[in-house]
């Protein structure tokens, strides 16, 4: 007889693992298509006389967008489950439908924004639409599948009271919020501005002057995801994975008031860890100005 806690911990670990993959795929999807806040620079670039070949996927902010994809995926999946399809296929087909919807929203966002920039002479390249949308859908599919899957696990194995589409919607919003807060910064502050020295801080005067040329030819969203997959994507995965794992872990391992105390201890540890990173960064990079206000870096 296996101790039930072993089984429970296995389930918690599985949700954490799925969330990690979901987070990474979510961020990379938003880098291929350029969504959320960093996209303001892609939008601005054409206006500043820098036409480009970067996908302009301004569907909406990532949280509502992922809320919709995950709610659609979970809706289709729960209809199929009600029709007694196997759970795995139901979630897979649901996520596929959601990924198609994501692709369709991407096309309208890109074409719409490009057409609205006529006076800045930003051309609409159709090969970009054909090339980027499948990649967006593929990354999106992984993210949606994992989010719907761990929502299903929480629903059916951990006994969460919310129905599947609602739970998937809420986790989709959380995943979008995390993705746009963490990984997107790597895309927005580093990858889009690799023409500036590392760590210089981006003077607001550089706005819109994004990198438009790639290693070979003109840079596009697929070049961007290649770079962001090295830091931004994995870290986003870490963030969503930690959120899901830690939150489920404390309610599985502990009982009663201890769940709250455990949660508060986790929060304290993170505050201290943040302080350590802050001190380390200040020491490593040093000030930009000396005491009298002169430039040192």
């Amino acid at each position: 007889m296996v101790d039930p806690i072993v089984m429970d911990m296995g389930i918690v670990a599985l949700t954490g693992a799925l969330a990690t993959i979901a987070g990474a795929a979510e961020d990379l999807e938003s880098d291929v298509g350029s969504q959320s806040n960093p996209n303001s620079q892609v939008q601005l670039a054409a206006q500043m006389n820098f036409p480009h070949r970067i996908f302009n996927k301004a569907i909406s902010g990532e949280p509502p967008a992922y809320g919709l994809w995950c709610a659609s995926g979970a809706t289709v999946a729960s209809v199929l489950m009600a029709k007694e399809m196997s759970i795995f296929f139901a979630i897979a087909i649901g996520s596929f439908v959601a990924a198609i919807i994501l692709g369709l929203f991407s096309v309208t966002a890109h074409m719409g924004r490009t057409a609205s920039q006529k006076r800045f002479k930003q051309p609409a390249y159709m090969d970009m639409v054909i090339g980027h949308v499948p990649s967006i859908m593929a990354h999106g599919y992984i993210a949606i599948f994992c989010i719907v899957a761990f929502s299903y696990i929480m629903d059916h194995f951990m006994g969460h009271p919310f129905p599947l589409p609602l739970l998937a919607f809420l986790w989709g919003v959380a995943a979008g919020a995390i993705g746009s807060s963490t990984g997107d910064v790597h895309y927005g502050a580093e990858r889009e501005f690799q023409n500036q020295p590392f760590g210089c801080g981006l003077n607001a005067a550089f706005s819109g002057n994004i990198v438009r040329k790639g290693e070979a030819g003109l840079r596009n969203g697929i070049d961007n995801v290649w770079a962001c997959a090295k830091l931004g994507g994995p870290l986003t995965g870490l963030a969503l994975g930690m959120t899901v794992f830690l939150d489920n872990w404390r309610t599985t391992v502990f009982e009663g008031m201890n769940t709250i105390i455990a949660g508060l201890i986790i929060v304290m540890i993170l505050i201290l860890a943040n302080r350590m990173v802050e001190v380390k960064a200040r020491k490593a990079y040093g000030p930009y100005k000396d005491e009298d206000g002169g430039e040192v870096a």
Partner: peptide, 9 residues
Amino acid sequence: NACLGPDEK
């Protein structure tokens, strides 16, 4: 949001 820009119709 999708059609935002100065030449929006």
